[in-house]
């Protein structure tokens, strides 16, 4: 559904999507799926009157990022295959880490404030 929608160069009505899907879905099914994607913030809806126009929230790299996010959210599978750069911190770890980094040099304090503001 998202890849079909991604081919569109401008916001399109649901019938446009339905025609290009090979699955032979009914109009109401297409609307249901689009609404679910809207809840997941993968698509946006525009146009006040009818027909309502749909477009993907992101295209290209953005779309890949959304799909990858969904894959990475399967934590069990992910942790079995990927080594994350950093693992989760407990509150105690966070304090310990801050004191370690503050000891390591003044550069950290400046750059970490930048990061928290951005």
């Amino acid at each position: 559904m998202l890849s079909v929608l991604g081919e569109a160069t401008e916001p399109v009505p649901a019938t446009w999507v339905q025609e290009r899907l090979d699955a032979g879905l009914s109009y109401s099914t297409v609307i249901t799926i689009l609404t679910r994607l809207l809840d997941k913030k993968a698509v946006t809806r525009s146009g006040s009157g009818r027909p309502v126009l749909w477009q993907p929230m992101a295209n290209g790299a953005g779309l890949t990022a959304i799909r990858m996010r969904r894959l990475l959210d399967q934590r069990h599978d992910r942790d079995a295959v990927l080594s994350s750069f950093v693992s989760a911190l407990s509150p105690h770890d966070e304090d310990l880490l801050r004191s370690l980094l503050n000891e390591s040099g003044p550069e950290f304090r400046d750059s970490s404030t930048d990061a928290s503001e951005s």
Binding site: A88, L97, L100, S116
Partner: peptide
């Protein structure tokens, strides 16, 4: 060390702590 530490702190802010 700073790269590891900063990355962990930023990830920590983004995710709610999962354990006590």
């Amino acid at each position: 060390a700073r790269a590891v530490g900063k990355a962990a702190l930023v990830s920590h802010r983004a995710a709610a702590p999962a354990f006590a």
